[in-house]
């Protein structure tokens, strides 16, 4: 069981459509066009989207409609993006959201 994801595409609902190339945590993937980023990650077998900033607990989507905030990912450099509300796009860079938001302009270890 541990090697599998949570959801898979099913032939009975298969639709024709294009695909897009994205990067998930640096890894290049091809996913169906028109999917939300959250759905694309689930189809790729993701079982952890983020780690909570409070306790470091692993989380994955709960509601798929924008009210649970568990699907938060870093998308094209923007932290804490609700991935169930954003559609995949060619060239998109997606990263798991581990802990607090890292803003563009924050550099490693440069605490005063």
């Amino acid at each position: 069981m541990s090697g599998t994801g949570f959801f898979r595409a099913v032939p009975a609902l298969k639709r024709e459509g294009g695909s897009v190339s994205i990067r998930i945590d640096g890894r290049a993937c091809t996913v169906r066009a028109g999917l939300s980023v959250a759905a694309a990650l689930l189809e790729q077998g993701a079982v952890r989207f983020r780690q909570t900033p409070v306790g470091g607990a692993p989380r994955a989507p709960l509601c798929m409609m924008g009210v649970c905030f568990e699907c938060l990912l870093e998308i094209d450099g923007i932290a804490n993006s609700q991935s169930c509300l954003i559609e995949v796009r060619d060239g998109m860079r997606i990263g798991t959201q581990d802990g607090a938001a890292r803003l563009a302009g924050m550099t490693e270890g440069a605490a005063p």
Binding site: F6, R32, L42, M64
Partner: peptide, 17 residues
């Protein structure tokens, strides 16, 4: 409801038992 959304919008169903 989330699973139903995944079915309708992404054609996906739960995996494994």
């Amino acid at each position: 409801g989330a699973a139903q959304i995944l079915m309708k919008s992404s054609g996906m169903v739960p995996e494994g038992p």
